[in-house]
Design a protein around this nucleic acid. Structure first.
Lengths: 137, 137
DNA sequence: ATATTCTACTTGTATTTTGCAAGTTAGTTA
DNA sequence: TAACTAACTTGCAAAATACAAGTAGAATAT
């Protein structure tokens, strides 16, 4: 699972090479909400990612230093996944995707509530959320 | 090439179902820069998309009303692809991806210049760029 | 202590998507 | 009217995705 060579010179292309797929940003989304997740937590989320895909994507995101993997303080059988600083800096991207999606899809109540919060003051929300996530680093 | 059923309730998941891949946002990027492109223009861009993939992605993006296809005013052999309003509203997403990528990749000179412009005043840039694209609608 | 369950995966295989190379067809240009 | 261009399509190989089942070590229940 080595890093691919990225030489496009375009930051969009290089970024999409890492997390431009159906699942990576959903993993980041889960970590934005939960701060830290176990393997099982990811499996539980609504979109029902297949376990082998999850394993692969977690490996890639860890290799790219977007997430980190650490021991669970209460069990040797569990691991905790968290966003790194590089992952936390993806929040503005994620929020803009939320805001775009809001315009064109029917949302569930919890997502509506989340966006209400975001839209009150986007910059303030981001700052708050990112600071909050940094505490878990 | 029918639309898939999207019922996740999460706007991120629903959005990624449409354009969560390596190529779709690069097509949007090209249209942000160029305003309107022919099929051949897309093929010329740096990342060298395969022609069958391009055809498929253009179809999907058109079906999702993110881009529109119209006759070229000067030739019956050519078509013009443009961003729709739905596509234009993807610009904030694209810009945040640019800004994220800037932090973690080496950029080419033209992308550096572009970002310098963006960073002077992000909101103003977006408004200007979006208004500019709307003129071509 | 040991059998059962839990947690984080891995493996096998089918399906879908991506990628490359080579057509094809209608419209344009020499 | 022949060559060329533009926008695709087709065929096939390779890779990614998806589903189902299995495994190994740690925790829990008996």
């Amino acid at each position: 699972m080595a890093k691919k060579n990225r030489n496009s010179g375009c930051p969009v292309s290089n970024s999409l090479d890492i997390w431009g797929d159906k699942w990576s940003l959903l993993i980041v989304r889960d970590l934005m909400y939960e701060k830290q997740c176990t393997y099982g937590d990811f499996l539980k989320s609504e979109e029902k990612i297949a376990t082998n895909i999850l394993a692969t994507k977690l490996q890639i995101l860890e290799a790219e230093e977007i997430i980190s993997k650490s021991q669970h303080p209460e069990s040797k059988a569990k691991f905790l996944y968290k966003l790194t600083e590089k992952g936390i800096s993806l929040l503005p991207v994620l929020i803009e995707i939320y805001l775009w999606g809001e315009q064109y899809f029917e949302l569930s109540e919890n997502h509506k509530k989340f966006l209400q919060d975001v839209k009150k003051d986007k910059e303030a929300f981001l700052k708050r959320a990112q600071e909050n996530l940094r505490k878990a680093l």
